[in-house]
Design a protein around this nucleic acid. Structure first.
Length: 426
RNA sequence: GGAGAGAUGGCAGAGUGGUCGAAUGCACAUCCUUGCUAAGGAUGCGUCUGGGUAACUGGACCGAGGGUUCGAAUCCCUCUCUCUCCGCCA
């Protein structure tokens, strides 16, 4: 959420953000509501002041004078009640509209329609070349009996899967490597709820606009998170932190749930787009300082890159254009890892800077050295998401006989295993 | 699932219709005093928000929402959460 004062003073900039992010929001209507609300509020408060003042007189008055005074105050009531109702309605309208206003992107973010206009800023590693016909991760997974989508679908419907044997071990290995990496970097690990209140979804910016993407547990008014970011960023909501505490680095592993509404027919095969997956997320809560925030953004990005490097997976980093930016995101870098079967780099990580957009919604603040309460800045990035990362891992490290080489860094987490052995049938 | 108790400022804890944004203690901040392993004193110290260059000043907030009243932390209704005991389950 933006500061209404900022919106009033920078209406053109916000209008541009709406355009650049390809959103459909009536900013003028919001500003009109804001203006009317303030007018009514002033009138209401003046009446309240009068009432409060006169009510105090009643308390001091002699008993025989009281009735006359009461009658006098009572005349204020109809107008006051009317105003209170109007203010309540306008406030609700105002708040709903405010939740939809996007944060303007940083000035250097490329303007663009969608992910096709993201700008490559870096590549790492050499693309693997094979002197045999490669298999995709599904063919490999089936042959090795480590990915079972058939029974996954039987159990849980489309976009479901089961990892089995070495497949499940590989997933755990990747997660544990990542966990250790972040712990070494000074992150505090949290084990968090994945079933959360709507407030947390709204606070992090996933609601109301992304509601269709979430699984709702309606009977209990809870929501399954699509990422641990929701719980981590909301963890200190409503609190006033001390400036010395910042920045706070948190990480958590969680199951993530996404309905993938609107993606019917897209990436249906394989492990790329699934309803439930595991992810380790990094979140940083920082001071309201753009320079700090930029440094931390780089830090988050670097952590993720180091993990991919340990996994010996070629990747590139793209600077995400305005049209592919989320409502609250000020800037975002995606890391796309090379997926041989797709003959393309595909998104595996997403590193976002929010400035105070989430923190304002979450009432997440700190007291600065002057004793002022300041809204924090927040950032986050994927550290690893599986099973998606298993796609490049299996495909890039496949051998001609159908076996899979385990990258060195992963072997300690696979009980020293160097190779997922080729299936006997080959 | 059953029975009961409760929710007040960073914490503890008073307040049951008016002068209460809220006693008191602790914590914290600044200053003073004293000097030795710590004490004493003074002042300040919640959040959001409107107006004003400022001094200052209006409004709201005592778990949340609604109601009664000239006036609500205090009375009434609904909800949420916490704690204790019993039951059930992991």
């Amino acid at each position: 959420m933006l500061d209404i004062k900022f919106i009033r003073e920078n209406a053109e900039l916000v209008q541009k953000a709406i355009r650049d992010k390809r959103m459909n929001i009536d900013l003028k209507a919001l500003l009109l509501v804001d203006e009317e609300l303030r007018l009514k509020q002033v009138e209401m408060e003046q009446l309240q002041a009068e009432r409060n003042q006169k009510s105090k007189l009643i308390a001091q008055a002699r008993p025989e004078e009281r009735d006359a005074l009461k009658a006098q105050v009572a005349t204020l009531k109809p107008r006051l009640e009317q105003l209170e109702t109007e203010v309540r309605q306008l406030t609700e309208q105002f708040e709903q509209a405010m939740l939809l206003v996007p944060a303007p992107a940083r000035a250097d973010v490329p303007i663009g329609r969608d992910d096709s206009e993201n700008v490559e800023v870096k590549t790492w590693g050499t693309l693997p070349s094979f002197d045999f016909d490669i298999k995709d991760h599904m063919a490999l997974g089936e042959a090795l009996d480590i990915i079972d989508t058939k029974r996954g679908v039987k159990l849980a419907g489309s976009r479901s899967y089961v990892l089995k044997g070495y497949g499940a071990q590989l997933e755990q290995a990747v997660l544990r490597l990542t966990q250790d990496h972040l712990l070494r970097k000074g992150f505090t690990q949290l084990s968090i709820p994945v079933l959360v209140k709507e407030e947390a979804m709204q606070g992090t910016g996933y609601f109301p606009s992304g509601r269709e993407q979430a699984y709702l547990v309606e009977r209990d008014e809870l929501v399954l998170v699509g990422t641990a970011e929701v719980s981590l960023t909301s963890y200190h909501s409503g609190e006033i932190l001390k400036e010395e505490q910042l920045p706070i680095r948190y990480m958590a592993q969680s199951s993530c749930f996404r309905r993938e509404a609107g993606t019917y027919g897209k990436d249906t095969a394989g492990l790329y787009r699934v309803h439930q997956f595991q992810k380790i997320e990094q979140v940083i809560i920082s001071r309201a300082d753009t320079e700090d925030s930029d440094k931390l953004h780089t830090e988050l990005l670097t952590n993720a890159e180091e993990i991919l490097q340990a996994l010996e997976l070629p990747y590139r980093v793209v600077y995400v254009c305005t049209g592919d930016l989320g409502q609250g995101q000020v800037r975002k870098h995606d890391i796309e890892t090379w997926m041989p079967s797709r003959k393309a780099y595909s998104e595996t990580h997403s590193c976002s800077t929010f400035h105070d957009f989430q923190a304002r919604r979450l009432k997440l603040r700190y007291k600065d050295k002057q004793g002022q309460n300041v809204i924090c800045y927040t950032l986050n990035n994927t550290a690893i998401a599986t099973p998606r990362v298993l796609i490049p891992l299996l495909e890039c490290h496949q051998q001609s006989d159908g076996s899979i080489r385990i990258p060195k860094a992963l072997r300690p987490y696979m009980n020293g295993l160097e190779l997922i052995p080729a299936p006997r049938s080959l």
